[in-house]
């Protein structure tokens, strides 16, 4: 059975869905970050697969930039997380309600 582009895309969407589940149900901010990493990676798979099957390097380029953004996000996000933890002693999402309308 030949593995085609669709296989990769379906895999990518399954991973994306898992990431979304994580994003929605996680309460701990750190674990929420994990879920966002999953989202980014699932997209990377799709990019790499498309790049391969269409013989075009643009997809891989995008994957690189996605990785760069993910790294920045982790750096800044963790910094903020530490600040928050110092201030409130917790990183529970439910305590973050200063934006309540």
């Amino acid at each position: 059975m030949e593995i085609g582009l669709n296989h990769y895309l379906i895999l990518s969407t399954i991973l994306f869905a898992i990431g979304l589940i994580g994003v929605m149900r996680r309460k701990n901010l750190l674990l929420l970050f994990f879920a966002t990493e999953i989202l980014l990676n699932s997209v990377n798979i799709a990019f790499a697969a498309i790049s391969h099957f269409y013989g075009d390097l643009t997809g891989q380029m995008f994957a690189f930039f996605v990785i760069a953004i993910a790294a920045s996000e982790v750096a800044v996000g963790l910094g903020l997380l530490i600040v928050w933890h110092k201030r409130h002693g917790t990183i529970d999402l439910d305590t973050m309600s200063t934006m309540r309308g």
């Binding site: 790294a71 920045s72 750096a75 800044v76 963790l78 910094g79 600040v83």
Partner: peptide
């Protein structure tokens, strides 16, 4: 630009922590 962004993120991480 991505390189600069990473640099900024690094500095931000250090400062924030």
């Amino acid at each position: 630009v991505a390189a600069v962004m990473l640099l900024v993120a690094m500095i931000a991480g250090i400062v924030l922590a």
